[in-house]
């Protein structure tokens, strides 16, 4: 286990190094810079600003400087928002996106898994068709349409929830539903097909021959076996949802991290682009690590250290 963890940490460092380098180069390859504006700045002002942010240094030096700072967990100042560092932007935005995203992931898992199980148990009957057609809707309706519909019906017509802003739990409901719809639908589909597959296995017949009833059959004999595809999906999905969504956060006017993914690129806000890219990549690697741990807990045949060993 220890060997495995150290291997994963090593690979995390490598992944991040490649991500940073590629992002750094791509970012500088885009025409324009953080201070390119429609209204031309005076050349001496521009020169001062560039000197202030070391943008006049050669690229390789900017790169090595940046790498040096990262080792000190300093992601640098934002070019766009004065007096705000990238560390501060992430520290401000992430907790909001994290709360919202956690609720969305929870919703997706808490409804997706049971829906998939019910569909599998009622294979080719009404409930199965109901779950499958709603999940098709969930997959095909874009989140901005779902969000608008939710706002229209649940915020304006019934006035059940606030339409926007971020002032407490009731403000989280509509955006988290909009975020959860797609993963919920995917989870339900994955769960259904993998449950159907497991239920056709011989060991399920063995359990039934022992006199195991339906509930215990699903819970003890089929659930663990059928969760693996779902877990594989939930890991990276959670990393994405927890870091926020540009669309949903913009519609509900939520001060999360999601909008920075898009606005930082518009603004050519180099340090913010890099900072949240690194943050997101690290989170994805971390969640994939959790997925691997979950595999071991779910299936004793899977071992992290060596292949083919018990």
């Amino acid at each position: 286990m220890l060997q495995y963890v150290s291997k994963r940490i090593l690979s995390l460092v490598l992944v991040l190094y490649i991500v940073i380098t590629a992002t750094f180069l791509l970012m500088h390859a885009i025409p324009g810079g953080p201070f390119t504006a429609e209204k031309k700045l005076a050349p001496e002002v521009l020169r001062n600003i560039n000197a202030r942010y070391h943008l006049d240094d050669p690229l390789w030096q900017q790169y090595t400087d940046y790498m040096g700072n990262i080792l000190k967990f300093d992601f640098g100042p934002s070019f766009k928002y004065q007096d705000r560092t990238v560390n501060k932007i992430i520290a401000d935005g992430f907790p909001v996106s994290l709360q919202l995203g956690s609720l969305a992931v929870l919703l997706a898992v808490a409804f997706g898994i049971p829906a998939g199980i019910i569909a599998a148990l009622r294979h080719n009957r009404f409930l199965d068709y109901l779950v499958m057609s709603s999940s098709t809707l969930g997959i095909s309706i874009p989140s901005f349409i779902l969000a608008s519909l939710l706002i229209y019906f649940l915020a304006f017509k019934i006035k059940l929830f606030p339409a926007a802003m971020w002032n407490g739990f009731s403000y989280m409901i509509l955006p988290s539903i909009s975020l959860a719809a797609l993963p919920m639908a995917v989870i339900a589909r994955l769960m259904r097909s993998s449950m159907l597959e497991v239920l056709s296995q011989d060991f399920i017949r063995t359990a039934r021959a022992k006199g195991v009833g339906q509930g215990l059959l699903i819970y003890r004999h089929a659930l663990k076996n059928s969760l693996i595809p779902v877990v594989t999906y939930v890991g990276p999905m959670a990393a994405g949802v927890l870091t926020g969504s540009f669309v949903v956060e913009s519609i509900f006017n939520i001060p999360g991290l999601g909008r920075h993914f898009v606005t930082s690129i518009y603004n050519r806000d180099y340090t913010v682009i890099l900072g949240i890219t690194i943050f997101y990549s690290a989170l994805i690697v971390f969640f994939n690590f959790l997925v691997d741990i979950a595999y071991v807990l779910l299936d004793p045949r899977i071992s992290l250290d060596k292949k083919g060993e018990n």
Partner: peptide, 10 residues
Amino acid sequence: DPIVSLNPVL
């Protein structure tokens, strides 16, 4: 078939 008739995760 005892190979597939026992639950692999229990």
